[in-house]
Amino acid sequence: MPKDTKTRTATLYRMVMPEHTCPFGLKSKDLLEREGYEVEDHYLETREETDAFMEKHGVETTPQTWIGGERIGGYDELREYFDKPVKDEDETSYQPVIAIFSVAALMALGLSWFTFETILTLRAFEWFIAISMCFLAVQKLQDVESFSTMFLNYDLLAKRWVRYGYLYPFGEALAGILMVAGALTFISAPVAIFIGAIGAVSVIKAVYVEKRELKCACVGGSSNVPLGFVSLTENVMMLGMGLWMGAKALWGL
């Protein structure tokens, strides 16, 4: 909790230049105002003025906040001062996966409502998996190089054929798009079965057999999602969807 509950005035120094306004300065000002502080807002309007300020106060970054004559620090320190969580760049997080699956589910339900005037349909479940595949593929396609590097840590086929790591996101996207459309199942089903089966076996071997602690490449090469249940779920969904769509096409289910 704040150490000085009586002082309701804070002094903030932040960069506001013609071509750059520091976003963390804006966040600091907003946080202070939401906490009930009147902000004495001081602009650092040139690079020279900013450098002189940092040298004078022995700091390496701006913004800087003072409360009750005590220097609190930058935006992260200000959040800590108010007992608010501060993001750790190395901390593992499931937030990207939760966001992807949640939006995919809502889109699938929306499509079902638009098409069938009800949300609880088998097609909605199929759309959910297919849309999730597309979203996950987009995450990988943002930086295929980083994805392929992380993928090489555990995928059995990629370790033997490096180019597979570059092709994987395109295959996942292709299968997902075709499954959304319900078209060319003779292409989408084998692709989903192939990459889903290899992926599932690779994750099981790396995580559950070898007990390795790795980052999951399922949402791209820069993610902090731990390898394990999420990646296994992605691959099992693809495998299951491929088998289901193939069975529907073969036997007219």
Rank of each mutant, 00 (worst) to 15 (best):
P2D: 12
K6P: 05
T7R: 09
T7V: 08
R8S: 11
T9D: 14
T11E: 10
T11G: 00
M17K: 12
M17R: 10
H20D: 08
P23I: 07
P23A: 14
S28F: 07
K29F: 08
K29Q: 14
D30A: 15
D30K: 15
L31V: 13
L31W: 08
E33A: 13
G36A: 02
E40V: 15
Y43F: 15
E45F: 15
E48D: 06
E49Q: 12
T50N: 08
T50W: 06
D51T: 15
A52F: 13
A52C: 14
F53L: 12
M54W: 10
K56W: 12
E60C: 05
E60P: 00
T61D: 04
T65P: 01
I67A: 11
R71S: 04
R71E: 01
D76Y: 09
E77F: 10
L78Q: 02
R79F: 00
R79D: 02
Y81G: 08
E89A: 15
T92M: 08
T92R: 07
F101A: 06
A104K: 02
A104V: 00
A105Q: 10
L106G: 06
G110K: 11
L111A: 01
F114N: 10
F114G: 01
T118R: 15
L122V: 15
L122K: 09
L122Y: 02
R123T: 09
F125R: 09
I129M: 08
I129R: 11
A130R: 00
S132D: 03
M133I: 06
M133G: 10
L136R: 04
Q139P: 00
L141M: 12
L141W: 02
Q142G: 03
D143E: 11
D143M: 04
V144K: 02
E145F: 13
S148I: 04
T149A: 09
M150A: 14
L152F: 12
L152K: 05
N153D: 13
D155N: 15
L157W: 11
K159Y: 13
G165S: 03
Y166P: 00
Y168L: 12
P169G: 00
G171W: 09
G176S: 08
I177W: 05
L178F: 12
M179W: 12
V180E: 14
A181S: 05
G182I: 10
L184Q: 08
T185N: 15
F186M: 08
F186V: 12
V191S: 12
V191F: 12
V191I: 14
A192K: 01
I195W: 04
I198F: 04
A200M: 09
V201D: 07
K205A: 03
K205E: 03
K205L: 05
Y208Q: 05
Y208C: 00
E210G: 04
K211A: 09
R212Y: 02
L214C: 09
L214T: 06
L214P: 02
G220P: 02
S222C: 06
S223Q: 00
N224A: 11
N224V: 12
L227C: 07
G228V: 01
V230Q: 01
S231P: 11
L232Y: 14
E234S: 07
E234D: 11
M237E: 08
G240N: 05
G242E: 04
A249K: 14
A249I: 06
L250W: 15
W251H: 08
L253R: 13
